[in-house]
């Protein structure tokens, strides 16, 4: 298995270079270093000299991909792409255009992102699986029917609506929780409850329907009939046997997103004032801060690859017949 993981990690390097190159190309198609300088320096009293100085100071005074004036390997290395990309492979992200250390920002913001994303993921998974199993238990009854209707209704509503409605009713009208904000430690719990609650509710519709489909497929199989024939209760059949055998597709969807939880949620963090990586990314895009955008895309790609590897590993754990080679 170790060899397999190592091989997969090595495969990741060209993927990450490709992603980096693509991000670089897309970013600089719409932004020139001059545009970035103007945005950072503001709209007033910006002189061409000031723009040049900003570019020199931030390392954007070099050619983008190929330095024809340099010789040898410097033609490739003395470029904006190389200077701003090479260090990322050792997770040195450098400074954002506002001068703040990106690595430090990521470390600081990861916690708040996880504080929301992890409970939403774990509680959401439990609630969705339980709800799906209950629908399967009551399959072909009015409870199943109305459960599916409820799921369709829930998944048809925009995520933004859940946030606005949740903030309006729970925090503003009923005064039960703070409408937004964040705090560290135990004091932070009261800020987390509302976004987590909304995150879980917003995910019930699609999650439960998906899991219901998986379980319905399992429930008709021979081993289920055998389990029932042995006299096991329906609860035991569902939660012990069907759930375990339905794990592979569940793992496919769940484990792959696990590392991405670090990246946070763009909208939720913005509305609830959570100082996480989601809001960091969206701020950087709005401010055309290429250094941060590039770092976050790189991190997202890396975590996605890690997620895929973890998914493969979890297959072998969930189903002993699967072997990683």
């Amino acid at each position: 298995m170790l060899a397999y993981i190592l091989r997969r990690l090595l495969y990741a390097i060209p993927i990450l270079i490709g992603v980096n190159l693509l991000t670089f190309a897309l970013f600089f198609v719409v932004n020139t270093p001059d545009d970035m300088a103007r945005l950072q320096l503001g709209a007033k009293h910006v002189t061409p000299d000031a723009i040049e100085r900003w570019k020199v100071e931030h390392g954007y005074d070099k050619p983008l991909l190929l330095n024809v004036q340099a010789s040898g390997s410097a033609q490739l290395t003395d470029t904006i792409f190389f200077q701003h990309s090479a260090t990322m492979f050792v997770f040195e992200f450098g400074k954002g255009d506002d001068g703040r250390n990106i690595g430090n920002e990521i470390r600081t913001r990861m916690g708040p992102s996880l504080a929301i994303a992890l409970p939403v993921f774990v509680i959401g998974l439990l609630v969705n699986i339980t709800f799906a199993l209950l629908m399967v238990f009551f399959r072909s009854t009015y409870l199943d029917l109305w459960g599916v209707v409820l799921c369709v209704v829930l998944m048809s509503i925009s995520g933004l609506f859940y946030i606005i409605a949740g903030q309006f009713f729970i925090a503003k009208l009923w005064n039960l929780l703070p409408i937004s904000g964040f705090a560290g430690g135990i004091d932070g719990l009261r800020f987390i409850v509302l976004p987590v609650l909304i995150g879980v509710v917003a995910g019930i519709g699609s999650g439960s329907r998906w899991y219901r489909t998986i379980f319905l497929e399992e429930i008709g199989k021979d081993y289920v009939r055998t389990a029932r024939a042995k006299g096991l209760s329906e609860v035991r059949v569902l939660f012990r046997h069907v759930l375990k055998n339905g794990m592979i597709p569940i793992l496919t969807g769940a484990v792959v997103v696990l590392p991405l939880l670090f990246m946070g949620s763009l909208i939720t963090e913005s509305f609830f004032g959570i100082p996480g990586l989601g809001s960091y990314t969206i701020d950087a895009i709005q401010a055309q801060d290429f250094a941060v955008v590039r770092a976050m895309v790189f991190l997202g790609s890396f975590l996605y690859i890690v997620g895929l590897i973890l998914t493969d590993i979890s297959y072998s754990w969930a189903d002993p017949r699967v072997r990683l080679q």
């Binding site: 903030q167 309006f168 005064n175 409408i179 937004s180 913005s270 509305f271 004032g273 809001s279």
Partner: peptide, 14 residues
């Protein structure tokens, strides 16, 4: 930090 106007306005009224 209050990026969105809805929570800002609500908190002011509260």
């Amino acid at each position: 930090l209050e990026k969105e106007t809805i929570p800002y306005w609500s908190k002011f009224l509260q």
